[in-house]
Design a protein around this nucleic acid. Structure first.
Lengths: 215, 215, 215, 215
DNA sequence: GATGAATGAGACTTCATTCAT
DNA sequence: CATGAATGAAGTCTCATTCAT
């Protein structure tokens, strides 16, 4: 999961035409980077293959040398994004107090979201009409939720979190809260006067909702 | 249903070539209803004006007698939807305990969401690329959040909710949690085995997050 | 030709549905006036029947009660225009010197053109694509040219104008000069700093071209 | 033909998606030629992009590979036409007598007009409703008038033409006479029995109007 | 007669993808 | 493999005219 080597194959069904030459690989990369830029600037539906080719400084037709369709590049761009968002810097983070872990985990997610805000917007967009892509997202979400639910269950075993909470549903709901709050604020531009206040509130609500003792 | 007379004018900027005759009003309504149906079935981008006209059993051009564009009908369809979703059945709901109020309010929202699930999906979709529509939604959200924040502040004055919570941020975050949870579950079809468990969890989390005493 | 009574029938093929009632006649007139206004403002192709009806404050369908088509109103509007342009105020103008007659006649035409400048523009426009209307104009031009050619021939008989000039061709060419000069200046807005200079030049050129002795 | 290399760029604002390859250039030319043909046959408003594409034997969409709109091709077609009409075969024509120069210049213009009669009709047509095109024509006219006015002033200095004539107004009026006479005769099909008589009359009137001594 | 709703053929333009060079 | 030209189905919107009330 952290080896990024051929995330394309494993991750999202975006297959690569096995870039042969070194030069080919570089061109492919140029197109991929250009694609992300253009998607961020114009959104998926308003992105033209011509834009991507132009941005990547390759001929129109060359795009199709490396990707079979507009959707295909998008899937691969998104796949990289998911990998980056999911990947916490290898820190095991065990041993810390729940409060600290929540805070650390949330902050790390906020930062990733901020770093990739524009692309997250497009991801949301494509998720509203592309079934294949919905499936891809579902998988990523499931992975993340399973992990969070695991943590909650551990805390329940340790008596830190009340037993009557459904660990998985809770993980789901809290993830939804954080995801959507960030989305509305960063992407949809809801006027939130103060970033810190939003993030602090999210931390506090997570903490309380889990019934954790005041830190 | 409560003074919806000209919600089009007042509500969202979706104003219409007011049909002058009874007959015109009937046709317009037919188109509006057909539009919603088709939007629900195919999503916004895949809906053709031709589909709407056909469904409404009017000529292609008749669509344009009443709406200047696909966007315009959508705005009006959405406006009606928002009105329905926002409209709680006139029940004042004062006097009840916070726990009861939360539960009642949430359930009422769930039901509305379920009733309008398909359309909510399209609303989310259009919100990802149409600026005008984003603005419309922002307004509706603001209204709803202001109301919730008011309730929270009242509970804070009554000593039921801790003072250190930022009422508005909290209202925002909890609304995001509920909205997005329902969206992911109902619209995106996240496999949630059990409805009741999801709704109960949302109630419980809301309750706990607000620091309300166990009921 | 000067009795305006039923110029519609005689003039341009624009037939009237014999307005019966007094009130009908008044409505018809309203439409006709409105049509001219709108044609002047938007030109023929960009004029919609809806505009005319709206301007005349009659229902859309009522337009067709009085005129069978957009072209038909235009023909009738143009017919009135031609009548007005051709109609010199009943002044016989015989006996005056050629120089004086030319000057008087030109000035009278200039004034008419100025009064009707906008409509003259539309006339020119429609003449470029409507065969029926071209025919109508040809007739009017022929009448006017015949008259001018007659005057030239009389002057030739009187020894005032050289015999070697072809009277009809000359009449044609001079009319073209005056018409088109006014058109380019008034309608097409060629920047002519000074009206008087243009008109004086036209008079002088006409005078000299005819070989009339310096006045 | 005299440095027409990129008349499109220099001439009238009709600039093109410069085709990069030889093949592209050929196709573009095919479309341009086809466009002129169709415009001549049907006039501007009745010309469909489909007609042009069909005539050029390219796909519908290929038209848009080279021209952004019907207007754009027209502008370029017209630009070529103006260049051809303005371009006198490089003959300096100095030294000749005014009478000879006038005659030569007029004849050359007549011939050009005849060669391009159909297109001149369409030019006139478009000039009645397209502002951008009106501007283009104004410029061309101004160039031509300035040149003629210069000749007249020279003749005035040489005592061949009376000083009291306004050189520029005269140039304008005479150009209008010739242009419109040809237009009415060739394009509008005014029944002129004899070409030579018309042209001779135009020469004679020009000559006399300028007060030149009988040749 | 007056009204205004209904009609639907038709025009323009876009753009993902294919193909010739 | 690179290039960029070629394709053409598809979709939106217009508007003169007809028709039902």
């Amino acid at each position: 999961m952290s080896g990024r080597a051929n995330s394309a194959e494993s991750g999202g069904g975006a297959q690569a035409n096995a870039p042969l030459t070194e030069r080919g690989a570089r061109t492919r990369e140029k197109v991929l980077v250009a694609a992300r830029e253009v998607f961020e600037e114009r959104g998926f539906p308003d992105t033209r293959v011509a834009h991507i080719a132009h941005r990547a400084q390759v001929a129109y037709g060359s795009f199709y040398t490396y990707f079979p369709s507009k959707e295909a590049v998008f899937l691969e761009v998104a796949d990289r994004l998911f990998a980056e968002m999911t990947d916490r810097g290898g820190v095991p983070a065990s041993g810390a107090s729940p409060a600290a872990r929540i805070r650390r985990s949330n902050r790390s997610y906020y930062e990733g979201y901020l770093r990739n805000a524009k692309m997250m917007a497009i991801v949301e967009q494509v998720a509203t009409f592309n079934e294949e892509f919905q499936e891809l997202r579902r998988k990523h979400r499931a992975t993340s939720i399973t992990r969070t639910a695991g943590a909650i269950r551990r805390w329940q075993r340790d008596g830190l979190v009340p037993d009557d909470l459904d660990a998985e549903m809770t993980a789901r709901a809290l993830a939804a809260m954080i995801d959507h709050s960030l989305y509305l604020w960063i992407v949809q531009g809801d006027d939130t006067p103060d970033t810190q206040r939003l993030l602090d509130t999210l931390d506090a609500l997570t903490h309380r909702a889990l019934g954790l003792p005041d830190s």
